[in-house]
Design a protein around this nucleic acid. Structure first.
Lengths: 338, 338
DNA sequence: CTGAAAGCGCTTACAG
DNA sequence: CTGAAAGCGCTTACAG
């Protein structure tokens, strides 16, 4: 592959001049520029980004470590992150942690070794030594969706509290009194928050959230299935199951179906995170929708602010309830939404 | 950030010795090794992969350019690619082309500039000059899922011909005679092949595929919706719609639902590509499943073979029909499958 | 406006 | 076993 030396030789100038033309440095004569450009075209030259990065100490690359690419929520997040980054002149390398702290560390390490300019993380756990060290060690970093308390890193996330309250009010209005939740890992902020928000909302309606109605999941479908089976085995099963993410809702649906039961007649179901397929499931599923695209874009902007020396700020956006039929028919709330 | 010089100074050896320890070169004394390791730990040193790549001319990185990350098929493909690559000691950078040739070129260019060791591509179109040049210019390359004819690049893909024949036989048995297809872009191999396979299978059953029953889609949900509306507007609408990918099936479902019609009573639906949600849609959708994980792994192995100087080979794996209820009840075929 | 030269952080043939 | 040195492909302060 042609190097800058070849271009310089072909154009009859020094490599410095070639570099200046490539970087649009103003002080280059029109003649030199033309000759360089011709040589570049003739040789099909493309600058070596590796060499450039070594010299300039910037890679124009962002790392994004997410907990699970197969989760449509994160897929969409990743997509909006890449879009915004591209618009700002950055590439992004995605690391999929698969909800495994060891894999998460593997990716953080690899990304750091590659000297990415900044790191966007949705932590799988409470924060490994490596991640804490990176955050303190000056690597520009921003948390998206989930975060790690006690670390001085901006957080871009959605607040589902209001939407959860709307959901519980909706359920209460439909006559449901025994509400259960499939929780995410307690080591994640979203895992904790959604349970807390749910509990508070129940309290406002004068309802309790007994321990047997809190199932421990891990944001993956299998755990949703397992927890739901446990709920169904109870002497007094819940009337509603609220899954803290869309994959666990899928698992819950599997479990209900395997027993030959029907949603919402036998048991109601709702989920945190809305996905396109929820419109077409049997029945369509009531869900809490996050402004995913906005989150991704805001996270990139915050990170790039930090990288380029501006003050980054945390962002919290509201989530909203989308009522469908999986909790029963509600003549009051169930309008044109779908 | 500490460099190899700092480590050398701290350990009281030359940078050459540090490098040897780090690369597990055999001729290093136990004493020197111990001192270097101690210095590495003390400084929290991590080798700069950018510098190493510049020197060794290898990045241990694979590029993967896919047509649409939001398509669950490609998400799963990307995941298996990353897994296999990681197992073989490579990282992967994903570029999402969003079915746009210009974006595809953008990613290919960026990846090439970064000097990735090899490129995995599922082309969005018939092949831009850039891609053809890369293929001919010696960049190790492998096509996955889709490919570009006339280029000497190994192809790893699924052959859906048999499964499509099984599908059509199933439909015929159910009494359906007017079958339509929502095709993918003619510029993609999968877009073409699926229509051809469908047409051939129909012929075997003595059925025709008239032009009005071939709708031109682009593998995105919106096109599935639009084409399906067209079908439903026909004086004699088809009895079955076969969507050439899962997203267009989603769009078709939207369109059918918007008209207040029911699947399969008013119109039957089947899709190429199986996804988890198809079990839970209303009704569950009959689909052709690709061995996606295997495809991703085989593609990586072929690419790494090529990179490391072994002879890569093309791989074709069979797809299979998964019968559900979206085409009507079939007492013969519809057994324990789901 | 232009070029020679230094240097980014590594690896590796060469000499000892 | 070890180190000095060259060099990967760039960018950029410096001198002219």
């Amino acid at each position: 592959m042609a190097s800058i030396k070849d271009v310089a030789a072909e154009a009859g100038v020094s490599v410095a001049t070639v570099s200046r033309v490539l970087n649009e440095h103003p002080s280059v004569s029109a003649d030199a520029r033309a000759r360089v450009l011709a040589a570049v075209a003739a040789l099909g030259y493309r600058p070596n980004a590796v060499a450039r990065s070594l010299r300039t100490d910037e890679t124009r690359t962002l790392g994004l470590v997410i907990s699970d690419v197969l989760n449509p929520y994160f897929t969409e997040l990743a997509r909006s992150v890449e879009e915004e980054a591209r618009a700002l002149g950055y590439s992004v390398i995605i690391g999929n942690a698969d909800e495994r702290p060891d894999l998460q560390d593997h990716h953080v390490r690899t990304l750091l070794d590659r000297r990415i300019d900044g790191l966007l993380v949705s932590p799988t756990d409470g924060g490994s030594p490596l991640m804490l060290e990176a955050a303190r060690g000056g690597t520009p970093m921003v948390f998206v969706d989930r975060w790690i308390p006690g670390v001085d890193v901006p957080v871009v996330r959605a607040d589902g509290r209001t939407a959860v309250r709307d959901l519980v009010a909706h359920l209460h209005r439909l006559g449901h009194r025994r509400l259960a939740i499939i929780a995410g890992p307690a080591a994640t902020t979203t895992g904790q928050e959604r349970v807390e928000a749910f509990r508070e909302a129940l309290e406002e309606c004068g309802l309790e959230l007994p321990d047997r109605y809190i199932g421990q999941g891990d944001f993956q479908a299998d755990s949703g299935r397992r927890v739901t089976e446990g709920f169904l085995d109870l002497a007094e099963p819940p009337q509603v199951v609220f899954a803290a993410d869309n994959l666990m809702a899928l698992g819950a649906l599997d479990a209900v179906r395997a027993r030959g039961l029907r949603v919402p007649d036998d048991i109601a179901l709702a989920a945190f995170d809305d996905i396109r397929w929820f419109v077409h499931t049997d029945p369509p599923i009531t869900a809490i929708a996050q402004p995913t695209g906005e989150l991704g874009r805001a996270a990139v902007r915050a990170l790039v602010d930090r990288i380029e020396g501006r003050a980054p700020h945390s962002v919290t956006l509201p989530a909203r309830l989308v009522v469908r039929r999986s909790c029963g028919e509600d003549p009051v709330t169930n309008r044109s939404q779908s």
